[in-house]
Simulated scan of single mutants.
Amino acid sequence: MTSVAVHIRRGDFITRNLQRNGFAVASLGYLIRAMERFKKKDPNVFFVVASDDIKWARNHLTGIDVKFSVGLSAAEDFALLANCDHIIISSGSFGWWAAWLNGGMTIYYKGFPRKGSRLWSHTDIDQYYYPQWIGME
């Protein structure tokens, strides 16, 4: 079986101030499309979700073969994400570093940072995301 880590950052990124500056939360549609991409490659894939809003993840990722990381420390979640076969990341440095260590296929959320925002103007996207990583929205 193939394991795919899914990191969903919401927490502080849903605040109006950070949103105004270009921080973006990955949409449910992005997460489902990214997961479906892996399911097409391997019907036996299973997903391991770590999030700072696990309640949201549980409420929205239904009907998919998903295991939710509950009760682990941030360090344990990080190790879990980094050690799956592949990874799907939303936004922020926690998921980025887990993807960097993961070594498998990485799918990242192309909506972060939001185009035209202050954060976008200070980010070199070609340097931030590796060329072999797959961007999706």
Rank of each mutant, 00 (worst) to 15 (best):
G116I: 08
L18S: 13
K110G: 15
E76D: 15
M136D: 10
R118C: 00
L72C: 10
R20Q: 11
N21D: 14
V45E: 10
W120Y: 15
Y130S: 10
A24Q: 14
S69V: 15
S90Y: 07
L119T: 03
I134D: 02
S27R: 11
A74L: 14
I87W: 03
I125A: 05
K40F: 04
D42Y: 01
G92S: 05
T123G: 08
I64P: 01
L28W: 09
A99T: 08
M35Q: 09
D126G: 11
F112N: 09
G135M: 06
V45A: 14
K55A: 14
I54R: 08
A50H: 04
L80A: 04
S73Y: 02
G95R: 05
H60G: 00
K40S: 12
R10Y: 10
H7N: 15
V49W: 08
L81N: 04
N83V: 03
D77W: 02
K39Y: 03
A98S: 12
G71S: 04
R33W: 00
I87Y: 03
S73D: 08
P113K: 05
L119H: 02
I8K: 07
Y108S: 09
N83H: 13
T2K: 15
R58D: 00
I64F: 12
M1G: 15
A57I: 07
R20G: 00
N102W: 04
T62D: 01
A75C: 00
F94L: 06
G95E: 09
G71K: 01
P43S: 15
V25M: 07
H86C: 00
D65K: 13
I88P: 06
D77K: 03
I88Q: 09
I64G: 00
G111I: 06
D85K: 07
Q132I: 02
S69I: 13
W97G: 03
E137P: 01
F94E: 10
I88T: 08
V25D: 09
V25Q: 03
V6W: 06
G116S: 11
T123P: 03
F13W: 11
Y130N: 11
A82M: 04
K40H: 07
L61F: 13
L80N: 05
I64D: 01
T123F: 05
F13A: 11
V48Q: 04
D77V: 02
V4K: 05
Q127L: 15
F38E: 11
V25C: 13
Y109A: 08
N83I: 05
I32H: 05
I8P: 03
N44P: 00
W133K: 06
A5S: 14
S51C: 06
F94Y: 13
S93I: 15
K39S: 15
Y129A: 04
Q19G: 02
I89L: 12
F112L: 10
T106A: 11
K115T: 12
K41P: 01
D85R: 06
W56R: 09
G111E: 07
S69T: 09
S117C: 11
N21E: 14
